[in-house]
Write a protein that binds this DNA or RNA. Sequence first.
RNA 1: CGGGGUGUAGCUUAGCCUGGUAGAGCGCCUGGUUUGGGACCAGGAGGUCGUAGGUUCGAAUCCUAUCGCCCCGACCA
Length: 588
Amino acid sequence: MKFWSQYFVPTLKESPADAEIASHKLLVRAGLVRKLGGGLYTYMPLGLRVMQKLTQLCREEIEAGGGIELWMPHVHPVENWEQGPRWAAAREIMFRTDSAGAGKGRSKEPEFVLGPTHEEVITPLVKQEITSYRDLPKNFFQIATKFRNEIRPRFGLMRAREFVMMDAYSFDANDEAAVKSYFAMKSAYEKFFKRVGIQAIAVEADTGVMGGSFSHEFMVPAEIGDDDVIYSESGYAANREKATSALVPKNIADAAPVGAIEEFATPGVVTIAALATAPYNVPGDQQFKTLVYIGDGKPFIVILRGSDELEEAKIGSLGFTVFRPATAEEIEPVLGAKPGSLGAVKGTIKNADALAGVFADHAIRLIGNGTTGANKDGFHLRNINVVRDLAITKFGDFRRVRPGEPCPQSGQPLQVRRGIEVGHIFKLGTKYSEKFGAVYTDDQKQSHLMVMGCFGIGISRTMQAVIEQSHDADGIVWPWNVAPFHVLICLLDPDSADAMNLAKKLATAAETAGADVIIDDRAERPGVKFKDADLIGIPLRVTIGSKGLKEGIVELKARNSKDVAKISLAEIEQRLAAIVNEEKRKAT
RNA sequence: CGGGGUGUAGCUUAGCCUGGUAGAGCGCCUGGUUUGGGACCAGGAGGUCGUAGGUUCGAAUCCUAUCGCCCCGACCA
């Protein structure tokens, strides 16, 4: 048991000026964290207790799902990252350092990075240690600090530059086994979030180059979330980056040409909207929108309906390591016109050979014959037929889904809501094992690449997500399993030896039943103690007051209820133990 | 990185527009009265007004630069 007067729970009456959302304010007000700098937080004693509980729950479920815990360095030699597949894409968010600060004296300074995640460490380790199919599958995990130099940290622990994450890495002999590992982890995640006492739904997530449906994010529904979840009543749920709809029928017939291409002057018209108004009157959904990107140094084109938005993440499926929108200066020499008059009609592209490809969204088939830029400033072309006229390399899904479109599984209207990503599971395949040479020998003496998966749970972010999902006007309402303490004994008259003895006796009874107990023995007025008790959100409160003692009772109150039960001194020990046992049972 | 905002005591802030002795509430310390939902009274400590320049007789206030923080966007392995 802990005594509040000797512990450290610095609660605040007022919200800090730099916190905007409820969970961030409560984190600080309840004395769980303090800020050092943007995205950098100290876990105060109470916050650390919550983190430790989350960590232990996570450890138990990941182990039950096949994980083996280890601990890797957070300082990584840069060579590991240079050898890996995503150095170019990841380096921007990595903290970089050298071995000795300034290190001016030496010509060659070893260089290090702080680990944002550990594929580049675990894969070489496994390559070194595992060479036989007999040692597979293996799934290693750690629960440790991660460093990411986020461009914009947000909302306290929600997106921090240093944070705590569980990261697991599975190694399997083949694809089938890797899928098995993947779903074992998915089920471990579901059990973990259930035990935490938080509603987290698995949604399909962007898989980048892998394709298929082998990435899921675990989302906590919340308005302040960073991600949009697209879902339908039928159970379909996907991150907007990944979501599709049944807007375009699967076997839509290609439209026949309606006539010869006609060029027409559109002076000053450089937007979809402008072309949609008089005198042109070409509706957005009859225009071809031509976007130019630079992928790994080469320009490429994406064609969408004028009325659609590009979902940039979906470009990831094209296989470029890094990509970005092209600038007007980069576009003109390739297409021959400035943005606003661009098109992908065969023969109009000034330097078609420079292009890495022309990728078209399926939805342009709905246009059939439409209008697009002429690659000549101030001119557009009409009667452009998708099949006959456009220089398409490949069709794909690149558009951003809109709410109301039919669900790809059930046809019901899609809906959207915000979510906080608290976990992500990913079937990696052989992307890393290839780079690092992680191979094993099978029972036929054949060498094969190991098939990998990687899995993450944001532990510190989950702490805040719990608060975001479970609080009221007075403070936090901790679910039993992650509460920093289960029972708060509110000692209104700490100077009374009888009251103190009773508090200790009840604390012992609750502890014996399996609860963590804190006794508020501060020399504060009752109002202060009650306010603080609600603020820090301990599930069970026992109030020992001199009035009650005269009547021979103490009071029992649950944080998530308004009811106050008066229990006689004769019964209280037993009742308290019984309630603790019941709460433990409910929380599993 | 673009846009916006902001920086005054441990915390929340007023003052800035219109330059002239830096103010309040909370918290803290001392004493007293209180004691079941953030008590009251009296006294007290605590601020180079983010930093550096500049303008001025005089700068928290005006100007410039710079740094930090917050929000929106972009970005997000």
